[in-house]
Design a protein around this nucleic acid. Structure first.
Lengths: 242, 242
DNA sequence: GAGTGGTCTAGACCACGAG
DNA sequence: TCGTGGTCTAGACCACTCA
């Protein structure tokens, strides 16, 4: 189907890919050093590095500066479930994801004002969430909520984020998905290379009055995340009948 | 916010980015040759090419082999509207998109059988759609429909695709979004570099009986496409009351 | 054929991580 | 400190586009 790529880096990448899929190189294992691999394939180091860059973009190999290149564990894909009211970037509970949340008070600025439809410097609360499987991060979320929607009583623990499920009757949730390169910060916190594209989701939730109750900026590593959106058309058909 | 990137290629990319945004380099214009730019910035050609690769990944620059590097027209972003029943990768009609459709008869094979929930070699019709704005493609779609749902009367013109709006009462539409590198074919038909990630959307639509009436594989260039999904929670709330 | 980008080489030097 | 990957150089050769 795909014509065999003539370039050397593709040939090398194909060979390593095969070795990985056939189990000659196991998950978590360290590859030989780039110098050794370059010698084995009789290419220069930049060429070999290009080959590894391909595998890295596919999520098969993880590069750790100073340590080596490692075979990534067999692609545990995270699934983001769209359609609203998920406190963090809620992945299906199937897999044990440790989610750490950090809450910060701040004031609206920049495009946050436009997203939330509030005036500049109006008080917000930011929830900075990272979910990990083991040591490797699987999602990064920055969730902004007008401060008056956050109950002042409890400590801003895990529960405060969860209240979004209950508090106001949700109206419309709009999620915009795009694919882009991570910012340097995102790349480091997600522990991915700056060349690996991410799924970037902007979620804006409004209550029934049209007020924005939540704006979330989600970043999911492109090599280990999908987003699923399900639409029930039967509901709309029924509604149309009325 | 973002610490100034120390590497030369980032510095060069930043400079070119500024020149583009300030209008010193206009859309559609050709950049000086890579050799000239390398000389101007006093770097080697590979380094300069790395800088251009960054701009290319951002969609600001388009490389045409043998012709030169060009400033891309100001990012006409296409928006894919999720939530079902759109015949092709229907972008909002705001912009004049020429969509060409080619219909082919084939039989289910490979993962198509799983997607559509049909037995192998059962007859399908494939719609191969490309939408362009001017000369540059904006989306690529392969839509598969069980052949018995396609009316045999009319020629498989534009209308055949549109009938999906009407014919069966739709049940559930599920759309899975991921970010990945294009296959070589996709890269060439979309006229993007193999390094630019695409938004890949798999859409499966079922009718009210649960039968799959359409499976679509969509590929949208990551630098000029978004996908938007809107969920109306009021409807669900009302439904829950009953 | 002249000029362009695409690939590759064979080194050099720096930055990071672990012992 | 030592081995690792990260960046860069200066030039070679090939492939493509256009006149």
């Amino acid at each position: 189907m795909t014509p065999p790529a003539p370039s050397r880096r593709h040939a090398i990448a194909d060979d390593l890919r095969n070795q990985i899929s056939k189990g000659h190189l196991k998950a978590g294992e360290r590859l030989p050093s780039e110098a050794q691999l370059a010698a084995r394939y009789a290419v220069s180091t930049p060429t070999l590095r290009n080959a590894l860059a391909l595998l890295q973009a596919e999520g098969l190999v993880e590069k750790l500066h100073g340590s080596g290149n490692f075979v990534r564990h067999p692609l545990h894909r995270t699934t983001y479930v769209g359609g609203g009211h998920t406190p963090s970037a809620l992945a299906p509970a199937e897999r044990a994801l440790h989610t750490s949340i950090r809450a910060t008070n701040l004031r609206a600025h920049g495009h946050l004002t436009a997203l939330l439809g509030v005036s500049p410097r109006s008080p917000l609360m930011e929830f900075f969430c990272i979910s990990r499987e083991g040591k490797t991060p699987h999602s990064l979320a920055r969730i902004y909520v007008p401060r008056d929607l956050v109950p002042a009583d409890g400590p801003e623990g895990l529960l405060t984020a969860r209240l979004l499920d209950l508090c106001p009757p949700l109206g419309v949730v709009q999620e915009t998905v795009s694919s882009r390169l991570p910012t340097p910060d995102e790349a480091t916190t997600l522990r991915i290379s700056p060349n690996l594209a991410i799924l970037s989701i902007t979620r804006v939730a409004t209550d029934t009055t049209g007020r924005v109750v939540e704006a979330a900026l989600l970043a999911l590593p492109g090599d280990r995340a999908d987003a699923v959106f399900t639409t029930h058309h039967a509901a709309e058909a029924r509604r149309a009948e009325r």
